[in-house]
């Protein structure tokens, strides 16, 4: 391992802030569904929340933030590629 791909120690406070952010984004997503909001723009906002939450899990909980690891790219690409395909599919259907 080089210094760039060595896992950094967890900083608990930022991870706890991320936890609260994940909970709030989840509640916002649920509320959008409960209130019956629909349409392409709403769907893309909700999808954006989900992808952002995935990035946060990868960066903060998996400890990939700021390190040059292939796993960071795996997570980023896994979120982006299906995200783009889902966006295209929903745009086609709209």
């Amino acid at each position: 391992m080089t210094p760039d791909d060595t896992p950094k120690p967890y900083r608990i406070r930022p991870c706890t802030v991320v936890y609260i952010a994940l909970m709030l984004l989840t509640l916002a997503t649920w509320l959008i569904g409960k209130l019956g909001y629909s349409g392409l723009q709403v769907s893309l906002v909700v999808l954006g929340f989900a992808l952002f939450k995935g990035f946060l899990i990868g960066d903060y909980y998996m400890g990939l933030r700021g390190i040059k690891s292939i796993w960071r790219w795996v997570i980023v690409l896994w979120l982006l590629i299906p995200g783009i395909l889902i966006t295209v599919a929903f745009s086609t259907a709209a």
Binding site: T29, G33, L47, A50, G54, I57, W71, P82
Partner: peptide, 20 residues
């Protein structure tokens, strides 16, 4: 890492199937 993978998958599945 495996558990976080399970979580990330659900984070996309939840809005895709239930909300969007």
């Amino acid at each position: 890492s495996y558990w976080h993978m399970v979580d990330i998958v659900w984070l996309v599945l939840f809005p895709l199937v239930y909300i969007m």
